[in-house]
Amino acid sequence: MTENKASSRNGLLIDYEFCTGCHSCEVACMKELKLPPEQYGIRVLEDGPRKTPKGKWDWTYLPFPTSLCDLCEDRVKAGKKPSCVQHCQAAIMTYGPVEELSKKLAEKPKMVLFTPV
């Protein structure tokens, strides 16, 4: 990988603390990539609901882009946000240069940064 690519790499920053597991990203992506049934460009994993030893509830969703994700190359070229980012009901996804996103990553806990391509 050239240095050029590394410095211009884009990613998805996800504030998964507030992911409600609504599946909008999954369906938005299927439509965008025109995927056949049961193929996904992004999947939402679930942990819980589980009562922790502290008596609190853990119930966390974690969306992650699969190998099919191309970071919505066509949309982005056309000046739009990636489809999952635009449609996420909790509005917890940000698309942009990894460098910028990594700064944001430090702003709060329970965030994750993906670099699918």
């Binding site: 609504c22 599946h23 909008s24 999954e26 369906v27 938005a28 439509k31 946000k81 489809s83 635009q86 449609h87 996420c88 009901q89 509005a91």
Partner: peptide, 18 residues
């Protein structure tokens, strides 16, 4: 697509409309 200019849902859609 969701209409990002509409303040009601600000571009978001649930899977049913998608």
């Amino acid at each position: 697509e969701g209409d990002a200019t509409n303040p009601y849902n600000a571009g978001r859609l649930c899977m049913r409309c998608l």
